[in-house]
Amino acid sequence: MKALVSGGTGQVGRFIVEELLGQGYQVIVGGRTRPVGGLFSQPVGFVPLALDPDRDQAVAFDGADHFVHAAFDHLPGRYRGGEGRDPDSFRARNLDGTVQLFKTARKAGVQRCVFLSSRAIYGTQPDGTLLTEATPPHPDTLYGTVKLLAEQALTAMARPDFVTTSLRITGVYGAALPGQPHKWQTLFCDYLAGRPVEPRLATEVHGRDVAHAVRMMLELPSGEINGQVFNVSDLLVDRHDLLKLLQTATGCTHPLPAPATGTPPLLMETGRLRGLGWAPGGEELLAQTIRSFHA
């Protein structure tokens, strides 16, 4: 099987590329620049691909059985607020450009299309709401709005010969790209240097588990997933507990921040995906990852 992965050199996309390579897929990375040598464990193809609604990019989909859309154009390091001072262009690239890629994939005969959406589509909800796929979305950022509208456009395209799914993903952690900091680099440096750290809770999932969810969408019977959306989340992580893992890995004796108090972030219910066989790594994978940062 041949899979085209947009944004395959990004922090999340590279986990998807590696997962598919490991399962014998022929992977083509679509993006603005060719992947640097050695980025992936096996050779990958490359095709130029852009979030440009006015460009004919049909050639990029030649021979592709599947399309995984992980690309998103934003200010570096920012998703929410990633539009900066140019919201119109941000919307045109990430919504209009995305929808055009979906249409091109369908016209080219791609069999399955997986879109990486976000928990940001849920936006503002009453305290204590358990976020299920049926929770009415109320995005409160342009990022969340764009993701939601792209989801809806893709779902409307679903048909037996064009199987579509969207994955609503929470914060992703894991090993960093070569030469780049990992997600918690600044936080860990502050703690190890004895600087104060503010308490915080956040929902997290490892990039490996995101990639596994993507592969499931390419391999499960179409009747179980076509036109569906799935939450992808694993742990509610307190900085106190996260830094305790770092403390164990490094032997650092600086005081830990207090456990977070107040209203916790809303949890994402993942029973729909788990019911299909998805099993994230949980606390064991989190601890293993922290140890790997300081091996």
Rank of each mutant, 00 (worst) to 15 (best):
M1H: 05
T203H: 15
L243H: 09
I169P: 07
P265N: 10
S117H: 08
L116A: 15
T263F: 02
L276K: 11
H182T: 05
M1N: 03
L131D: 00
A134V: 12
D161P: 04
P87H: 14
R93M: 12
T170H: 12
D73R: 08
W184L: 10
L201F: 05
V146S: 13
Q185F: 13
A70S: 15
F293S: 02
Q57Y: 08
A295E: 12
D209R: 01
Q42K: 15
I28A: 03
E151D: 14
G45L: 00
V68H: 01
L235P: 08
F61W: 05
C252W: 08
Q180P: 02
W278I: 03
G22R: 01
G13K: 00
P139W: 15
F15S: 00
L49T: 06
I28G: 00
G174W: 02
P264D: 13
G128M: 11
R159P: 01
P199E: 06
P265M: 06
E224S: 15
V12T: 10
P35T: 01
P221G: 13
Q23M: 00
M1K: 05
A70V: 04
T98R: 07
T145V: 10
H212S: 05
K107I: 06
T124K: 13
D241C: 11
H66F: 15
E224V: 08
G179H: 07
D161W: 06
G123I: 12
D62K: 13
G227T: 12
Q100W: 05
S222C: 09
A150K: 09
G8Q: 00
A153D: 07
D238R: 08
N226E: 10
V232W: 09
A202M: 13
V110G: 08
L256M: 04
L187F: 05
Q11Y: 14
R55F: 03
S222H: 14
I16C: 01
D234E: 12
D88A: 15
D56V: 05
L235G: 11
P259Y: 14
R168A: 10
